[in-house]
Design a protein around this nucleic acid. Structure first.
Lengths: 239, 239
DNA sequence: CGTCATTTTGAGGTATTTCAACGAAGGTGG
DNA sequence: CCACCTTCGTTGAAATACCTCAAAATGACG
């Protein structure tokens, strides 16, 4: 038995894009019960650095939730370049798929602990627990915002500005209120280049420039110290 | 009363990124009932071309679902450049917000009809209808994949290649199986430039090059005809 | 301590950006 | 219906920034 519909039914039969507002912690943080449910269907996995978690086009059976460590998602392009789609850390989810197959490769950057969640069972769980699903939805939405931010980052022409935005973003990753002065960069320069859409050499030169300008001091390969936070913020804002 | 948790509860208390597989139509298309529910809380709005729907940082009260027409989401950067985050069409959702405020501006490209859905009521509806929410989740996930694809597009160095990918993508937007030979481009060259991270002049030159190479014939400002589909595909694949 | 991968540094080539001016299109008002 | 005006688009030439190729230096790892 169908009620009259105030307008063409087909108009809203399918949806494409996405939007949403950011919510309070009560709407973001999982409850103990929800955590238990996830842990029940999942399996804890611990992998050393530089291990491939899955490859592009392979059957996507699992979704992964990082509890500790770092992961990169990348794709090897026909030209031989390697495009890094994202760096993932603790509390991040990954395993983006399409038509049942992963859309990119995932590899650990360091010793990483993660939960491996079977897609089927996770989907069933989410359909059953609308509250938890809403939290997932909020997370995806957040991720979408991040992707848009990155697109703006990439639109910059200057390599130094891109690297500055990258380091600034990494420094506020865990705790937006506290701008960490010391930023750990577990990925290689090559990975950063792939993420920023630059050549390895350009990243190296950009790092030298930021160092020379007294904004960021790079110590070793995996550590950056923000020297002039204000100057860095100025450069970052000069999009 | 809490059950024992097999591992550190805090590890999964919050999630960040997102993943998912693509599902069958039964999991994507809204039911009549769900359409009714959306129409009930929403309001039909019809706007002429070049109208601002909302501005950056303004309170995000609504989410919009396009039924017909075209919309662009953009941000004006401090440098004076305009970064276009996305083009939206029929069956797309938009109104991405953060902390209760829109993260970019939205403007109609042509005469557009849309449904205006109050965020609060939509959230309540989704929490109540896990099935519909799952469809929303799939859409956001799809949008996230699109954002990653765009990031790869932008990573290309050559303007002609970027424009080729853009046109090719627009041609498969509605129906992936049928590569439309005639592609409508309701946005301006400036908008395309903002979307591709190029200057307006580069887009113009790239269009001339694709035309000269016999791949795409641009007729007027808002129409592109794919002449050599195979050659275009070759250029698109040469990422 | 030696080997190998990663990173840095240098020089030249090539692409896009910028600046500037012209031409075309669309919308408005008479 | 036409003319005007504003916006958008095209084309040209010079400058800038990144990319590529190549080689040396640094650091990681066994």
């Amino acid at each position: 038995m169908k009620k009259p519909i105030p307008s063409d039914p087909d108009e809203m039969s399918s949806l494409r894009s996405v939007p949403f507002q950011y919510l309070a912690d009560t709407e973001r943080v999982l409850t103990d019960r929800q955590r238990q449910d996830l842990i029940r269907i999942g399996m804890r996995v611990r992998l050393p650095a530089r291990m491939t978690i899955y490859r592009e086009d392979s059957p996507a059976q699992w979704v992964f939730a990082i509890t500790e460590g770092a992961v990169k998602c990348y794709r090897d392009l026909p030209s031989g370049k390697r495009a890094v789609g994202a760096f993932l850390f603790a509390r991040d989810l990954f395993g983006l798929a399409e038509n049942g197959r992963y859309v990119n490769c995932a590899q650990t950057l360091a010793l990483t602990t993660m939960y491996r969640l079977p897609v089927k069972e996770l989907a069933a769980l989410l359909k059953h627990d609308a509250d938890m699903q809403f939290k997932f939805l909020m997370k995806v939405t957040h991720e979408l915002r991040e992707a848009q931010r990155r697109a703006i980052l990439i639109s910059r022409r200057d390599a130094a500005g891109r690297l500055a935005m990258f380091v600034a973003h990494m420094s506020t990753r865990d705790c937006p209120s506290v701008n960490t002065r010391v930023v750990s960069l577990p990925m290689t320069r090559s990975d950063i280049a792939g993420f920023l859409g630059l050549s390895l050499e350009s990243v190296s030169r950009a790092a030298a420039e930021l160092d020379h300008r007294g904004l960021i001091k790079f110590e070793g390969r995996h550590l950056a110290k923000i020297v002039d936070a204000e100057g860095l913020a100025r450069l970052v804002a000069a999009v």
